[in-house]
């Protein structure tokens, strides 16, 4: 079976600054891949390229059978297959939790009101926030907002979920509830790419770790590489991180 995400020799510059310098990797169906590395090493850029929030200069990206680097790609089809959650939750402030979740199913997938409501209940139960269905985002804590953002993505039934440092904006005591939701998704077999600074968490749930350094994959492998890194850069990074 072909992988859900595949990068082949991906190059990307912002102006004259090269950010991705030939990145290749694959995420097979059902795998959890953790992308780690120093700030500025190109992790977010790589993740954003998957959903074509950034376009690449060279190489190719395939996601769920969509040729992402093709300029004629049907973006809306691609984005129905990809769920993405950012550090800043980006909930829509003027909509209730339910409306945040059902907006895309209703407008994009033309779900009727009742079906959309059921869907909202399902995904909220999944993130443990059913009782907040009628709340507005500003009435929720950061951790709860982030869980709603995850639920909102899940409501589109994506093939793959991308998480970009989703706990970095949270107080330490709130990160646990969000990580638990992600771990639960991993157990259910969701294909995921996880950019994270939570090394212990990555070591626990990731099937594969990719360490990025200066726009390249510097080292990758099973979670073992976190315990016994073979490059001095990863050793350094892990030492500083733990």
């Amino acid at each position: 079976m072909s992988p859900i995400v595949s990068f082949r020799d991906v190059h990307k510059s912002f102006g004259a600054v090269p950010v991705l310098k030939g990145v290749s990797f694959e995420i097979p169906k059902g795998q959890v891949v953790a992308l780690i590395g120093r700030s500025g090493s190109g992790k977010s850029t790589a993740l954003r390229c998957i959903d074509r929030l950034e376009t690449i200069d060279r190489g190719s990206i395939t996601v769920c059978g969509h040729a992402v680097s093709d300029p004629n790609i049907n973006l809306r089809k691609l984005r129905q297959d990809v769920g993405i959650v950012f550090q800043s939750y980006n909930l829509f402030p003027h909509l209730t939790v339910e409306q945040n979740i059902t907006l895309a199913p209703r407008w994009v997938k033309k779900a009727d009101r009742r079906k959309a409501h059921e869907l909202a209940r399902d995904v909220l139960a999944q993130v443990g926030l059913l009782e907040k269905i009628d709340a507005y985002p500003e009435q929720l804590s950061g951790g709860q907002q982030q869980r709603v953002a995850i639920a909102r993505s899940l409501a589109m039934h994506p093939q793959v979920m991308l998480f970009d440092e989703v706990t970095s904006a949270l107080d330490p005591e709130l990160t646990g509830e969000v990580l638990k939701v992600i771990e639960e998704l991993a157990k259910q077999g969701m294909t995921m790419l996880l950019v994270t600074h939570e090394m212990a968490f990555a070591a626990r749930i990731a099937d594969r770790i990719i360490f990025m350094h200066q726009g390249l994959i510097h080292e990758s492998g099973s979670r073992e590489i976190l315990r016994s890194p073979s490059t001095p850069e990863l050793k350094n990074f892990v030492g500083a991180g733990l």
Partner: peptide, 11 residues
Amino acid sequence: GQVEAGDCLAL
């Protein structure tokens, strides 16, 4: 980020 969130939801 608001617009980006909408884009990512395939709107």
